[in-house]
């Protein structure tokens, strides 16, 4: 199925070069609860991985626990609920982190170890039964180019802004 979408995407991009311009790629990112990030959504989209990596090392090596980008906390605000009103795990494609990653063919291993739901919720075991895939992640698919385009087009997101 994914392959079909991918090929269709490729064809579409090839056939209509104007496609990406007015109808910009927009991921269906699930709504969050709580306060938005002071850095802004655009910044988060672009830099969430680097922020988490940075803060991960602070926690791991320096015991700094009041960090900003704690992967344990994301789901206090970014928990997507299913029909039954329960938070979905990363095994569900509606999960917050997968909303963009699936589309961009980004695969992260974080949830081999980290919970993908708020603390206290009893996760069903089906996530484990998925096992681990052996296919390597394709970092740059057809959509990836569009995603990056989209990210670059986002206002205020530049490398300098990060410093």
């Amino acid at each position: 199925m994914r392959l079909v979408i991918l090929i269709t995407g490729l064809l579409l991009t090839a056939l209509s070069p104007a496609w990406g311009q007015d109808a910009a790629w927009a991921p269906a990112v699930p709504k969050a609860s709580g306060e938005p990030h002071p850095e802004g959504n655009a910044y988060m989209r672009r830099w969430h991985m680097s922020m988490m990596k940075h803060d991960r090392d602070l926690t791991m090596y320096d015991g700094e626990r009041g960090v900003n980008a704690s992967i344990g906390e994301c789901f206090e605000c970014h928990a997507v609920k299913d029909e039954a009103g329960q938070p979905v795990t990363v095994a569900d494609e509606r999960h917050f982190c997968r909303s963009c990653h699936d589309y961009a063919a980004v695969k992260v291993d974080c949830f081999d170890c980290h919970r993908s739901t708020p603390e206290g919720f009893e996760e069903p075991p089906h996530q484990a039964s998925l096992g681990r895939g052996i296919l390597p992640t394709l970092p740059y698919s057809a959509q990836m180019a569009q995603v990056l385009e989209y990210l670059r087009a986002s206002p205020t997101v530049t490398a300098e802004a990060r410093e």
């Binding site: 344990g72 795990t89 081999d112 170890c113 980290h114 919970r115 603390e119 009893e122 996760e123 069903p124 075991p125 996530q127 484990a128 039964s129 998925l130 096992g131 681990r132």
Partner: peptide
């Protein structure tokens, strides 16, 4: 030795490590 789920937020642990 096996994939795990439902870890504690403060104690991440996972298969292969």
């Amino acid at each position: 030795h096996e994939p795990v789920t439902n870890q504690k937020t403060h104690a991440p642990r996972g298969v292969g490590t």
